[in-house]
Write a protein that binds this DNA or RNA. Structure first.
Lengths: 248, 248
DNA sequence: GCTACCATACTGCCATACAAGTATGCAATA
DNA sequence: TATTGCATACTTGTATGGCAGTATGGTAGC
């Protein structure tokens, strides 16, 4: 289940509700940069492409627009939004805040079953460290989701996913060269913090981890200027100070 | 601006895009319990009511469904969702996490202009403490929004608003009897923590504040059983431990 | 060569029509 | 009386046509 529900996420099953399927497919195509930022799309174009009418396409567009993946300009057209540094950072900020509290919950009352499950997931990650980066991304996703579920906040994960799409676009741009080993080690640090009931260290580990993922965001933006909004340079990111170590 | 853009939020301006207006109006009606939980609504009913076609209504429904305010059952109908204790608590949890980090940011680098603005808002709240509860809710909202804007995370507030609707439904049920004075004092505690640069105390003040708002959630649910989902009692809420004061 | 104008094609938005599934009430039957 | 079957009136989902506003390319005028 972790590896593949993948078979053909790219096809539309005409016998089931079309609009939600389209939403999923289009989001995937955008996040994976198959539909490139700046490209114009239209309801009729996509409708023809998938052999459906414009109506479900429109409904998919609306949801994607809410997610910030496309921009609908009335009477002018619809286009894939470029990746906005601000949007990505805000998504990360929100996600860090939420997951930090989740991890604190877990560390305050460590649960051996959950810890075991998380360690299992990390083992899986080790095994696929050298393989397809896609698989690792899925594994990473499973890990973070497991964190939420362990804290009995599974419903929250669904909310978070809408935000995640912004970050995911960046991750798919940096597919090859992110430090898998390092990320796995950070996962492990989080879990061990939880297992020891060390709230502060678990929280710090998580915050560091989520910052790592986008640490070379400016670099990626420089390497793929066409995919990003004009960068308002000088606008440095403000993140909360980590609780460990430093003091006034 | 704080008091009234209110004139007639309940009317539809046929010359402007209809779907977004409908979304706003319907959300307001649901949050204020004008459209009561459990009630069945249909696209055609609402369409006739506002003198528009089904299409924009449908699009508004989709968005409201994403917010968790209504449930669309294909071929069966659409109904106003009852207030789910879990959904409310999850919304509150997320909001606490985000705003806690925002407050930490502010307290780490106190900005006299922002502090002055926040104090102004609190003065306004004092002046309208005895007045229409609606006005106080708006003032409270302005305060929390100002927090986000001061941290240069204004974009985040828009994301948070989607979650807030769940909490707002509860607030509108408890309109008369929430402790306005106490809430204002808590606002003040947050601001003074920020002003002193006391990160821990500001954060704690905010977390306490957001918990206060829903402290009598079970009571409200008991008093208005028709508005709430069947309560899975015994499921107590898990919140993160506050950093100040308490220890094992 | 340059500018202003206009026809045309295209867009998203809305209205309407049709399709398919579901609840409901009534009637026929056991 | 209780139950089954069906006609009917809903529901949402999808398709299609018309509308108003916008970009675009060519052309006429200078």
């Amino acid at each position: 289940m972790l590896i593949e529900q993948a078979d053909r996420i790219w096809e539309i099953d005409q016998t089931r509700p079309i609009a939600p399927q389209l939403r999923r497919v289009l989001r995937e195509r955008i996040v994976r940069n198959d539909l490139q930022p700046g490209r114009k799309i239209s309801e009729s174009e996509i409708a023809a492409q998938y052999g459906v009418s414009r109506q479900p396409v429109r409904e998919a567009f609306i949801r994607l627009s809410d997610e910030g993946l496309i921009a609908i300009l009335p009477q002018r057209g619809t286009r894939i939004r470029r990746i906005g540094l601000t949007a990505v950072r805000e998504s990360r900020f929100i996600r860090e805040a939420i997951e930090a509290d989740i991890v604190r919950l877990l560390a305050e009352r460590p649960d051996s079953a959950s810890v075991a499950e998380l360690r299992d997931l990390i083992d899986q990650q080790h095994r696929m460290a050298e393989g397809d980066p896609f698989d690792f991304i899925r594994a990473d996703e499973a890990f973070h989701r497991a964190l939420a579920r362990s804290a009995a906040k599974d419903g929250i994960w669904q909310r978070v996913q809408g935000l995640k799409s912004q970050m995911d676009r960046v991750r798919f741009l940096s597919l090859g060269h992110f430090p898998v080993r390092k990320l796995i080690d950070q996962h492990a640090a989080i879990v061990e913090g939880i297992a020891r009931g060390d709230v502060a260290s678990a929280e710090t580990a998580l915050r560091l981890h989520l910052r790592e993922v986008l640490s070379d965001l400016p670099l990626i933006a420089q390497e793929n200027p066409d995919f990003f909004d004009a960068v308002p340079d000088g606008a440095e990111e403000r993140v909360v100070r980590l609780n460990g170590g430093d003091h006034e």
